[in-house]
């Protein structure tokens, strides 16, 4: 196995990781600040992708499509927050699970009702398509590099938002003590709505960006949702830094595991059996990673110790 291939796989793992981060960031904020388990986060991802595909189909502009994706997901996020979630902050996690599960059903079938049962078309814009040659002679798709950059930029911006701005201070305070910041005159329900919209917009953005290289279809959000939960649990709930590191860990484990485990097994098994058992193990790899992390640090890597 050549060095070039290994570097390329690491880039792939990074790219997968930063896209997971976009999903996980919103989820971990909502989870950390409001204590809400939002299963419907995957639906917001799907809404982003569908909105982008529709707008790209109408206007042909990828930038407009991305903006539409964020807008649509944010609007959907605010709607759910105001109509449903707001009534559930006081209740236990179980009611939230049931309510957001119900929302998944409504959004998935609603989308299918509006857009039909077949996948939609959304492609990467011409100016980002095709491969570029990196130093060292590695050919790598330009669009994936763009995804890595966008992901890291968002991560940086979120970091600044949390540490440097007024709203960031409120978010951090809200995580620690709801009553106290309410007493200090912060409109807590408005803060919640803003966080929800922000998280939703990020999910929508991820859906649109990833939708361009994958397929835009009903049900695309649920597998990503489960992975995003894995990410935030590994990273520690409520921590943006944890979400970033967790996302990169999951991305790299999944990608590299899929490549190297079968190779490893080939050392002592015949090729097709090694291929089958190696890929079986690699599909379990991230869950094993999560299990190990939680057994080692029960509140995730960067979670608050209680």
């Amino acid at each position: 196995m050549s060095t070039i291939l290994i570097i390329e796989q690491i880039l792939n793992g990074l790219q997968f990781g930063v896209m997971l981060f976009l999903m996980a960031a919103g989820l971990t904020l909502i989870f950390g600040v409001m204590g809400l388990i939002n299963l419907a986060h995957g639906s917001l991802y799907m809404i982003g992708a569908f909105a982008a595909a529709t707008v790209a189909g109408l206007t042909g502009s990828f930038v407009l499509a991305l903006m539409a994706a964020m807008m649509a997901a944010a609007i959907a996020g605010v709607l759910i927050e105001v109509l449903v979630i707001r009534r559930l902050y006081a209740t236990d996690h179980l009611d939230q699970v049931l309510a957001t599960f119900a929302l998944i059903l409504i959004f998935s079938e609603g989308t299918r009702w509006v857009f039909g049962s077949f996948p939609l078309f959304l492609n990467i814009p011409d100016y980002f398509s095709g491969p570029v040659t990196l130093p060292g002679g590695i050919e790598y798709p330009l669009y994936r590099l763009v995804l890595i950059c966008v992901g890291l930029l968002v991560a940086g911006a979120l970091g600044l938002l949390i540490t440097r701005t007024r709203i960031g201070i409120q978010i951090r305070a809200g995580k620690d003590d709801h009553e106290m910041i309410a007493a200090l005159g912060v409109d807590i329900s408005k803060l919640y709505t803003v966080i929800f919209a922000l998280g939703a917009a990020l999910a929508g953005l991820a859906g649109a960006l990833v939708g361009a290289i994958q397929s835009v279809q009903v049900g695309m959000g649920e597998p990503v949702l489960i992975l995003a939960f894995v990410v935030i649990v590994i990273g520690g709930i409520g921590s943006i830094k944890g979400a970033l590191i967790g996302a990169l860990l999951v991305g790299l484990t999944d990608t590299l595991g899929g490549v190297f485990l079968p190779e490893l097994f080939k050392l002592f098994m015949e090729p097709s059996a090694a291929q089958a058992s190696g890929s079986a193990l690699s599909s379990m790899a991230i869950y094993i990673l999560m299990g190990v992390v939680l057994v080692w640090r029960p509140a995730g890597l960067f979670g608050a110790r209680k």
């Binding site: 009534r87 309510a99 119900a102 929302l103 059903l105 409504i106 998935s108 079938e109 609603g110 299918r112």
Partner: peptide, 18 residues
Amino acid sequence: YWHIYLGALLLIVVLFAR
């Protein structure tokens, strides 16, 4: 599209039947 109805019913139970 019956999942929509199922979802709506579940939602009603959560919101109004503690």
